[in-house]
Computed example of a mutant assay.
Amino acid sequence: MSALLLALAAGAVIGLALGALGGGGSVLAVPALIYLLGFTPVAATTASLIVVGVTSATAQSAHARDGHVRWRTGLLFAAAGIGPAVLGGALAARLPGAALTAGFAVVAAVAALRMLRPGPAADGTERVRPGRAAAAGAGLGAVTGVLGVGGGFLAVPALVGVVGLRMRDAVGTSLLVITVNSLAALAMRAGTADGLDWAVVAPFAGAAILGAWDGRRLASKVSGSALQRVFAVVLLAVAAFMLIDAVV
């Protein structure tokens, strides 16, 4: 299969997950870029930030039109994560590829296990606890900067459990956080973007944007918990493969 077709297929799957779950799709972007499209770990994390940032911004605008973005909460999370995302982006360029791959595999495994566990119930009453929200946002920014993932798989549970948002509002708000964190991390990776293969990255991003629109429609028809379980099993297998590849 040609690189173009692989990029289109992978981008569609990642966009579908982002649109339906508010995160998670970005965790597949890096392994897809490395193992399917031949990117180095550093190039893959940079390309992932571009794809995830553009896709999240597009999907977030649709959720906002439906009234499912809580701007005050999302901006608090994002503001706390900007500094760590910038520092993480600078650090990632100096880490060896094997370390990035292993670190990514561990984060992906944690995300998969978190998705398989029952999430906290939200009462729908927004109760921002600034200290806890800022701490969660900072941790999210650091993960985004170093590993090139949007962090929605961490943002959604935090927005439900810490802030008390309903699931649909948490999904839309997480996309705002992902967009800001991705842009902040990219600010420190400008040099690593010069050598990217845009003939692959552009169609990858385009397919992800279209997939995100389908994901938003899918989320309104299929149980979110069922979608999470299927995605988590796939993600756990990918994490195991990447960890073996990094240490062997």
Rank of each mutant, 00 (worst) to 15 (best):
D123M: 03
A207N: 06
P130Y: 13
D169C: 03
A7L: 06
Q228I: 02
G139T: 00
L235S: 03
G23P: 07
G150Y: 13
L235I: 02
V54H: 08
R65Y: 07
M115D: 11
T55W: 13
G137E: 08
A64W: 14
A12P: 05
R70P: 00
R132H: 11
L165H: 04
A232L: 04
V149D: 13
Q228H: 07
G145M: 08
M167D: 10
S61N: 10
G191A: 13
L5A: 14
V163S: 10
A111S: 15
A208W: 13
G195E: 15
P157L: 14
A20T: 01
V248F: 10
V233C: 11
G74K: 00
L36Y: 09
V200D: 13
P120V: 06
I34A: 05
R127T: 12
A9I: 03
P84K: 00
L154N: 02
V149P: 03
P118F: 11
G137I: 02
T101A: 11
G139E: 00
V107Y: 13
A93K: 00
A98Y: 02
A121R: 09
V149Y: 11
A240Q: 02
V238L: 13
V230I: 15
G81T: 02
I34G: 06
G89Q: 05
V200F: 11
V222W: 12
A109L: 12
G119W: 13
A12Y: 07
A44L: 04
L196M: 04
G150L: 09
L116I: 01
V234W: 09
V86R: 00
F77T: 00
A121C: 00
L33T: 04
R65D: 07
A136Y: 00
